[in-house]
Nucleic acid binder design. Structure first.
Lengths: 255, 255
DNA sequence: GAGTGGTCTAGACCACAGA
DNA sequence: CTGTGGTCTAGACCACTCG
């Protein structure tokens, strides 16, 4: 047995992880092929493959058949209600807090936006106070990317009676001032919001596909509900991101 | 080759997952040994082992050498600032919101509490406005279990100048009314709080050990900071839980 | 000691991407 | 076509728990 030192797959994963975070393999680059890594670490390819699954589950790499294993590591982004403050929105400019955060990391923000009329899922219909089983919503899908790496998908649901035929229905660029400003202009200003966070769940196939993550990778889901002074919910936005791409922060009074 | 139908390891994981959630294997029970499952599904033990790792990463099972694979599935618990309301605390009784939630699931809540004087980590020292590198804090460790399954570990840090020698230092049972009431009685009533959520990260070895989870399993971390009317932070509580054991909910005004 | 899961190998075949 | 990662097997040895 010529191997002087033995390597468990966790050990291999740890070494590669350190090289990624240390900048040896920058985000967007491709790792050496598994057979080469196997030789380098004196282990079988099975073990290296196993180590890659560990790193893929952590979100550091994205192995692809035929294409190699790409580094997808990104530091987490902060999600905070402060992003909804008018002052914050204006300070960051019309492009929004997302763009600013991505650029601050030296990456290029990208948006893909589509809208459609659709039937909301039961929980959304319930929150909006709409009858179930009808295509009574305008839904605005946004896929956000950082230098071609998908980092979040948002689905914003609005009652068709409020949003149909308005600026919210435009597929084009980001809405100036954000959807909350647009809703306020339509006569539905929001005064409070509720957010529910599911820190970690398995993605649906559609989500794994849209986010281009390994099926083992977990996602975080944030459900944001915006309400008017009358307590009417006029917006439900569901955000899904790879779990380690996000942190959240809240402040609240104690009674 | 007598196998009529082929099974991928994801397929095996899916079948066992459905059986667990469906109640075929209740929480706390032990799955059949891997060789038996291999035969049942017409696959090698390697594949079944692989499927188990998937389920372990999801938090549904906890395989242990020599002991078998135990089902550890629990529905997520809701974390909400409402738990800090005095009215909520009183309604739930002195045992707290945690006990009520666990009992509502038909499980037995358990607490392990230890206190010590210790040096806070740099970020905690910074928040509390204390000099670094000194054992100037009282830290109160709580490990919470549901029917012998660890579901959360809390570390509450208080300045020793406030909490030393007080009721907060007692290792005994749960503090009646909670630590916030105790701090208020000591002259430090809290009026607001900030919470930061890291939805998913790898556990430290100590955390994986205390929570008895597989090293692959991710955890959610919530850092809670309680502040007085003067803006002084008097309490920092760091909660760590297996990621899928928790959901969080917040409400806030929009400006 | 017997049985459990944890790890590892060598080799194989497949699906997919790209020249 | 070649090379990539994805999957799978058969068998092996180890570490651990429990009777």
């Amino acid at each position: 047995m010529p191997n002087v030192d033995r390597h468990g797959f966790r050990e291999i994963a740890t070494k590669i992880r350190e090289e990624i975070i240390g900048g040896r393999y920058p985000t967007g680059s491709v790792l050496p092929p598994e057979p080469e890594l196997a030789q380098r670490y004196g282990a079988s390819r099975s073990l290296v493959n196993r180590a890659m699954q560990v790193l893929a589950a952590e979100g550091l790499v994205r192995p692809r058949q035929g294409r190699g294993t790409m580094v997808t590591w990104l530091p987490p982004m902060l999600h905070s209600p402060a992003r909804y403050d008018r002052s914050t929105r204006e300070a960051k400019g019309a492009r929004g807090a997302f763009d600013a955060e991505i650029r601050a990391r030296g990456l290029e923000p990208q948006h893909e936006i589509t809208t459609e009329h659709a039937e909301p899922p039961p929980n959304v219909a319930d929150i909006l106070g709409l009858p179930a089983g009808e295509a009574n919503c305008l839904v605005r899908h946004r896929r956000l990317l950082a230098s071609d790496i998908p980092v979040r998908i948002n689905s914003s649901w609005f009652p068709l009676s409020i949003a149909g035929g308005t600026v919210l229905e435009e597929n084009g660029p980001v809405i100036v001032g954000g959807v909350k400003s647009a809703l306020a202009d339509l006569g539905y200003p929001q005064v409070s919001a509720r957010e529910e966070i599911v820190p970690s769940r398995m993605p649906t196939d559609a989500e794994a596909n849209a986010l281009e993550i390994s099926p083992e990778r977990t996602v975080v889901e944030i459900t944001h509900v915006g309400m008017t002074a009358e307590g009417q919910a006029v917006e439900v936005t569901i955000s899904v991101a790879p779990a380690h791409y996000l942190t959240a922060q809240y402040e609240f009074p104690l009674t």
